[in-house]
Design a protein around this nucleic acid. Sequence first.
DNA 1: GCTGAATTGCAACAAAGTTGCATCTACTAT
DNA 2: ATAGTAGATGCAACTTTGTTGCAATTCAGC
Lengths: 139, 139
Amino acid sequence: MSNLQKQAEEMIRRRGERVTSSRVQILAMLLAEQRAVTHHEIEERLRNTHRLDRVTLYRVLEWLNDKCFVHKVVSDDRAWRFRANTHIYPHQHAHFECMRCTTVICLDEMKVEYDRPLPAGYRSQEIELTVKGLCAECT
Amino acid sequence: MSNLQKQAEEMIRRRGERVTSSRVQILAMLLAEQRAVTHHEIEERLRNTHRLDRVTLYRVLEWLNDKCFVHKVVSDDRAWRFRANTHIYPHQHAHFECMRCTTVICLDEMKVEYDRPLPAGYRSQEIELTVKGLCAECT
DNA sequence: GCTGAATTGCAACAAAGTTGCATCTACTAT
DNA sequence: ATAGTAGATGCAACTTTGTTGCAATTCAGC
Ligand SMILES: [Mn+2]
Ligand SMILES: [Mn+2]
Ligand SMILES: [Zn+2]
Ligand SMILES: [Zn+2]
């Protein structure tokens, strides 16, 4: 069992949640990854090491998100992308989306704010900021 | 023929593009609307007055977007929403998305900026800012 | 009115995600 | 250690949103 797998298992157990092999494998994979990755990429990556139904993957990802182990981002190709949370209390941060290769990264440094007032009766709860452009590979 | 329909037809003709009844009906509908509306809502709205295949609707919406008559926004429910452009040269602006009823409005007033630097080699081309919360109806 | 290119309708397809239900498994209580 | 149970998983079927190929129709210029 790899270090990341042990770490993933420990994270889940410490929160009093049920430890299953799918959860551990998926979270470990996400912990290793710098980018935000799609359902499809995760499936591909785990194919050889771990048998996993795609519905289970959807359900585990939703569960990881609900439990704040990961967060997800939607982008222009209409697919969710997932990334392990680096902070226990995830802070709002911006994302970068490459318009050519669709890579998504988190801009953890970038605090997101806005000041202008909303129309009467509207309340803000979250802010999402996406910078689009070309990544280092695609420039 | 309503005023908006005349206006829509005139907008298309003045740009030297082919005027078709689908384009006129759809653009007129969008000109009347304050919110950003989905494919589905447009279809529903035009059902009684104008026979229209859903593929044609997709194609006309894409065409209207390409020609800058409208712009589109993707939101958490993974459906594109369309709104007629109020300025001829559309400026970047933020959007508000209601987390309960999924309504999307344009925050035309809100200029979008960001300052923090990107990772080395990354280039920014557009910025998208979405404020999420509760709309006036859902508060 | 005729003509050619652009637009439309229809059927089939595709990607991404969801639902229902039977089976299996991780944790708890004994 | 064993058994019971709530929760997790696998599988098949389904849904939603959007796309593609192609033949038939329509628009704009002559
Ligand atoms: Mn992120
Ligand atoms: Mn807008
Ligand atoms: Zn790229
Ligand atoms: Zn609302």
